[in-house]
Structure formats: structure tokens, C-alpha cells
Amino acid sequence: MGHFSTRLQPNHPTDDPKGIAASIIEGLLYGSGDAVIGINPATDSPATVMTLLKLIDSLREQFAIPTQSCVLSHITTTLELMNAGAPVDLCFQSIAGTEKANSSFGISLALLDEAYAAALSLNRGTIGQNVMYFETGQGSELSANGHHGVDLQTCEARAYAIARKYKPLLVNSVVGFIGPEYLYDGKQIIRAALEDHFCGKLLGLPMGVDICYTNHAEADQDDMDNLLTLLGVAGCNFIMGIPGSDDVMLNYQSTSFHDALYLRKVLGLRPAPEFEQWLMKQGIVDQKGDLLPVKASHSLIKATNYMNH
């Protein structure tokens, strides 16, 4: 039987720790978060990123959750924090497929090498040393005017070649975030997502897709439902889990906690094995993997109380 995972994405418009914790706990109770619990911070301030890293880390330790955490700050911020001893499971960076586009992201291969070495040196892996999380998406080279006349898909595949060098745990194509000047409608977003998934498989990457769209694209949640099923059938590794599909910080729509449950049910897919065991132990799912009703007295819900201070 195959497996299918999710990144739990508990973003908050002002990085409020209690608000983020509420979304994390809700996601866990829906069986989300086996790929990673990953927060996009609203600000790249090192102090905020540190607070959020500690928040997920303490929650993960307290409940012995078999997953990893990530705060998706710029790699220079993460590097600075790693040097200060922050609990960084996964080092994040957006990457592109040309040198010029990567410069517009403020990165170079040398910088990636440095961050990779720093993340490895933390030695936090218990069953592996895959310490990088990359995000990509067709169009970033065109947006940075760094495409050299090469098509979107080829540029994107070049980004995967960069990713592969660093043995990442996760690579995620944020396919519909770029906007309609690059991918105009639902049809183009669906096509690009399947292209990305295909190239990721060819290059042997642990690829997932952020099935998403912005409100100025000619797309809606029905397009995402279609893409969700297409990618599930095509053997996609992971998608995003966001409360009600609505990212209230990044202002775009992706997939909900419920969406992943649907796909697992319809295609007979299970969460990562150790995470599924944890879900059963917590009384969140039964032996068949079906969700159990949650009681207000569940210890995870009470966990938000300690965040009052």
C-alpha cells in the first residue's frame, strides 16, 4: 500500500504564536503534518523565526510527534540562526533554474553549500540526514528576467537538478502562486503541476506540489480538486494542509486538511508509517486510518493553555 503525506502549513498574518499553535493542533487532529510542519513567517526577522522554531520544536518534543519542523525564512536568516544553535530540522530555500534568477533570490550555489554543511553539522536526523527543503515553481526565471530565452518547464527542471545535489527531504513546486502573467488559468496551472511532478519523478526527487492559485488567476477551488485527484493518481508524494484551504498570511488558496483525507480514502493511501502509529496512539485515527471524533479534553487541545504566557 502506498503512502501520501502533507506539509502542515499553519501560517498567521502577524506570526502570533498562539494563532499558529491553534492551526498546528487542528491540523494534527486531522492527521496532517507527516512530511513537515512548515510555517511561512510574515516577517523575516531572526527573533520571530527563532520564536516559531522553538514553538514547533517544543510541541514536537512534548508529544513525541514523529515529524520535522521548518520555518521558511530566507536561507541567510536560517544560517544565522543555526550558528546561534536554533533547533533547525530542515533548512529551507526557494530556488530557480538559472544563476540570474537565483541571484534575484539572494542565493548562490556557494551559499547553498554553506547552509547544507551547517544543517548537517547540527546532526538532528534520527533515521537519515536529509536536511534540506526546497521550493520551486515555473516562471520565477521569467519573473527575474533570467530565462535566457529558455522555456518555463526546462528552467524548472534545471532547478530540480540543483535540488538533487543537496539530498533534500522535500522539494515542493508552489505551482499556482506565481500569478496569471505566467500561468493564466486553471488549465495552465494543472498542466504545469503535472509537468513538474513528471520531471521530479524523472530526477528521483522527493517531490510534492502546492496545489494552489491566487485570486487574480482564472482558477477556482474546483480546478484544485481536479488537480488534487490527478496528482494523487500520478503518485504525488505530498501536498499542503491549510485550514479550510485559505492561507490568511500569503493570501492564496491551496488544499485543506480535509482534501488529504479524501485522497487517502479514495486511493487507499496511508500517512507515513511512524506518523500513522502516532495518530493511532493519540486516538486521532482508528486501525483503518479513519478519523475518530475528537474530545475537547484531548491533551493536544489543552496544549494551547501553556502558551498563555
Binding site: P10, I20, A22, S245, P293
Partner: peptide, 29 residues
């Protein structure tokens, strides 16, 4: 299934605590 987390809605504008019907988002939501 209603969602016991609806009490935490005050801490975030995110669409938490919306409950489920089977595995799906309830019709009203």
C-alpha cells in the same frame, strides 16, 4: 462532527474549527 477547536478561533483568522461531514468540509462552510 463539530470541531472542539472552535474555541481557539479567537486567536487566528484562519478557517479552523470548521468541522467535517465524513472527511469533507461541511456544506455551509
Amino acid at each position: 462532527h463539530t470541531d472542539p477547536l472552535s474555541s481557539l478561533k479567537e486567536f487566528t483568522p484562519a478557517r479552523i474549527g470548521i468541522g467535517r461531514v465524513g472527511n469533507s468540509i461541511p456544506l455551509a462552510e
